[in-house]
Design a protein around this nucleic acid. Structure first.
Lengths: 184, 184
DNA sequence: GATTGTGTAAAGTGATCGTTTTACATTGGT
DNA sequence: ACCAATGTAAAACGATCACTTTACACAATC
C-alpha cells in the first residue's frame, strides 16, 4: 500500500510535468511510463486510461494549487500566484489547456476544469468580502479576469504581467472601496 | 491561379475551424483534406506540412483579427472583441493554445504567436495614447492583462467576463487620467 | 507452504499518425 | 496538337498511437 502510494505519486508527478511541458495529446504513454519508471501494465492498473491519468493529474494539481492560494488578502493571492510562477514556470492554465486540447469532449477532464474554476471564483469572491466588507460579484468578476489574464499573459511577457495585474487589482479594489465604503 | 486561391482559402477556412474546435494535434490530415474537399497531395503542394498549414492558418487569422480591432478607443476595442466572440464563439487564443500544444518547439508557430502578441501590445499602447494623451506602458500592460483575461475567462464564464473586463478597463483608464491629466 | 496481490519486461493488438508515391484526368497557353 | 501545370483517388510508407496480453518474479497473508 505504501509502495502503491509511492508509485502513484511518482506517476502523477512525472505525468504532470510532461503534460504541462509538451501537451496532453503530444505526450505518448511510453514517455509517461519510462519517466515514471513503471510498466504500462501498472499504469493502467492505477489510472485506467490516458484520460483517467490526466483527470488524476488535474485533481492533484488542483489540491496543490488550493493550498498555495489559501491566503487572507487579494494582494497576497496575486503574490502567491507570482511565487508559483517563479518556482514552477508559467505555461498557462493546465485545466483550460487540456480541456480545449480535447475539444471539451472528455467528461472527466471537463469536470476537473469546472471544479477548479468554480473554486477560483468562490475563492476570489471570499477575498473580496474580506477586502470590501461585503459581497461584490462585479468586483470579483473583474479580479477573475485579471487573474486569468495574468496566468496567460505571463507565459509570453513574464513578470511584467504580474506587476501589472497587481497594480490593476489595487486600483480596482480602491475604486470599489470609494464607491461603497461599508467598512471604514 | 484563381482556382488555386479558392483552394487555399477553402483549406485555411476548414483547417482553422477544425484546429480551433478540436485542437491542433488531435486533428488528423484526413479530417482536414475531406473537410476542405481536396486531396492530400494538393494540401502538401500548398502548405508543405501540417506545421506549415497551422502557420498559414495563424497568419490568416491574425490578418482577420487585425481588421476587427482596428478601432479608435479602448472601449471600442473591447466591444470589437465581444462581437467577435458572439459571432464566432470563444475557445481561447488559438495562437497561445497552438504554441503550448506544440511545447513551443515549432519555430513557425512560435513566430506566428510572437508576431500576433507583439501587434496586440503595440495596438493597446496606441489606444492608450489616444485615451490618455501620452504613452503609458504601465496602463497598457494592465489593459493587456485584462484583454488576455477576457479572452480566456470568456471560454468558461461567457458574456459576464466581457462586461467585467469593460468595467475594469474603464476604472483603470479613469484612474490613469486622474493621476496624469495631460489632456483635460 | 500454497495462494493472492502487485510489480516488471516485452511482445502484440489494430488503428491512426503525417507524409510520399503511383497512376491518371483535366485544363490553359504556345 | 502538345506540353506543363494542377488537380484527384488511392495505395503504401514506416512510425507511433492507446491499450492488452503473455510470461514471470517477489512479496505478504492465511
Amino acid at each position: 500500500m505504501q509502495a502503491s502510494n509511492d508509485i502513484r505519486a511518482r506517476l502523477l508527478d512525472a505525468a504532470e510535468a510532461l503534460f504541462d511541458r509538451h501537451g496532453f495529446t503530444a505526450t505518448g504513454m511510453d514517455r509517461l511510463t519510462s519517466a515514471a519508471g513503471i510498466s504500462s501494465r501498472t499504469l493502467y492498473k492505477h489510472v485506467g486510461s490516458k484520460n483517467g491519468l490526466m483527470a488524476a493529474v488535474l485533481q492533484a494539481r488542483d489540491r496543490r494549487f488550493r493550498r498555495r492560494v489559501d491566503v487572507a488578502s487579494v494582494d497576497a493571492f496575486f503574490a502567491a500566484l507570482e511565487t508559483w510562477f517563479a518556482e514552477e514556470g508559467a505555461r498557462g492554465c493546465l485545466f483550460l489547456r487540456t480541456w480545449r486540447e480535447t475539444g471539451g469532449d472528455v467528461p472527466e477532464i471537463a469536470e476537473a476544469m469546472s471544479r477548479h474554476k468554480a473554486f477560483m471564483q468562490e475563492t476570489i469572491g471570499e477575498l473580496v468580502v474580506s477586502e470590501i466588507g461585503s459581497r461584490d460579484e462585479a468586483l470579483a468578476d473583474e479580479i477573475l479576469v485579471l487573474f486569468e489574464g495574468m496566468v496567460h499573459a505571463y507565459t509570453y511577457r513574464g513578470e511584467a504581467m504580474a506587476s501589472a495585474a497587481r497594480r490593476a487589482v489595487h486600483t480596482l479594489v480602491s475604486a470599489a472601496r470609494a464607491r461603497e465604503p461599508k467598512t471604514e
